[in-house]
Design a protein around this nucleic acid. Sequence first.
DNA 1: GTGGTCTAGACCACT
DNA 2: GTGGTCTAGACCACG
Lengths: 122, 122, 122, 122
Amino acid sequence: MKPIDYQDPRPIYEQIAAYYKSLILRGIMETDEKLPSVRSLAMELSTNPNTVQRAFTELEHEGYIYSVSGRGNFVKDASSLLTKKQDELVGELQTIRREAGELGLSFDELVRQAQNGTDGQN
Amino acid sequence: MKPIDYQDPRPIYEQIAAYYKSLILRGIMETDEKLPSVRSLAMELSTNPNTVQRAFTELEHEGYIYSVSGRGNFVKDASSLLTKKQDELVGELQTIRREAGELGLSFDELVRQAQNGTDGQN
Amino acid sequence: MKPIDYQDPRPIYEQIAAYYKSLILRGIMETDEKLPSVRSLAMELSTNPNTVQRAFTELEHEGYIYSVSGRGNFVKDASSLLTKKQDELVGELQTIRREAGELGLSFDELVRQAQNGTDGQN
Amino acid sequence: MKPIDYQDPRPIYEQIAAYYKSLILRGIMETDEKLPSVRSLAMELSTNPNTVQRAFTELEHEGYIYSVSGRGNFVKDASSLLTKKQDELVGELQTIRREAGELGLSFDELVRQAQNGTDGQN
DNA sequence: GTGGTCTAGACCACT
DNA sequence: GTGGTCTAGACCACG
């Protein structure tokens, strides 16, 4: 599985970041495991090192990885991240649900609309 | 119905803004109808005029109201706002759905969790 | 000259309001002159009385007309309005000019772009 | 170049926001670069932290920066912002041009007036 | 330390 | 009277 999909409307650095978030949160990459170097990953994905660097910067800001100057980028303590991320998503859903209620819209109906027009295997 | 709930984690100015968004989007307040003055509403809600002002500023920035200096704040043309807002909410749900997929989480399960712990009549 | 143009992207009530602003500012309608009644104008333009009412409400809010309940709508003191409006437009142009400067864009170039794609007899 | 000019009729928080918009749109500040902290910038400009906070809130609402609680404020992906902003300015110019036409004023004359009384090197 | 929120009180411009 | 801006000072949550 390659992280970049040019059909995807998201910018490339977002896709790269999302790919590693997924690997980390699912436990496929373990704590303190080293990520590929910026240059090598840029080669592999045929993209610009700046784009990879931006993805890594985002991962660092959001607490997924830490960077050691001159050594590389490494996975942060991943154990708590998944449940934390899950709580965030549930929180966002509750916000949307409350907003829908305030506007007289049916939350279930919105959920149904969100499930149409996409692949759909959840 | 009073707009401020101190149990609600949202800041007061957000609650006030949300309250008027709801009134406007549901059509309870009509185009060009006048909102209460900053000072009188602050009195009524026992809060600071700055807090009300902040709520109104947010409403103005988001296109719900317009302000006429020395006259008051008035409801903007709200006709198209509701469907636009609904589209936004569906878009946010699709984003969450995709993120959940990337993390190996069940979107339906998250939706179920979001519906527990709150009143729940959607 | 009829005020409504369905090609115009602006809402109908905006067009009606703009039409009367033009008449008032150019001195074609004089101070205290009576505007057509809401109902008769709606008939003449084959539109809904609500739409005309909304246009008149906007004109009143912006200080062009005043309304006397049961009698009709009348032109406010128009003498000072034109120069005031002209000053407003110049002020807006200066704002745009300053913003362009802050962004490293050429104001003249923007003006040129704004003059292409439209009729062009200024 | 210091952002605050007390001769400028714009409120201080607007000037601060405009200053950083300019830096971001011109590419002088890069994506994910950190802005000064609210308090340190307030010290440097001899103004109140609330005023700086207001400027940053506006920048966040308008999509120029994002804030990470406890870490600071950072520049958002700015690549598409400049052309978008330019289109907005051209659109505003066209609106003014149409209004001028409706009032019997010469657009070119207004542009000339807007260029007098200021520095003038566009 | 950071951002974020809130209060109290003041001043201005506009009408 | 109205909205809008600014200051001073306080408190909270997060890390």
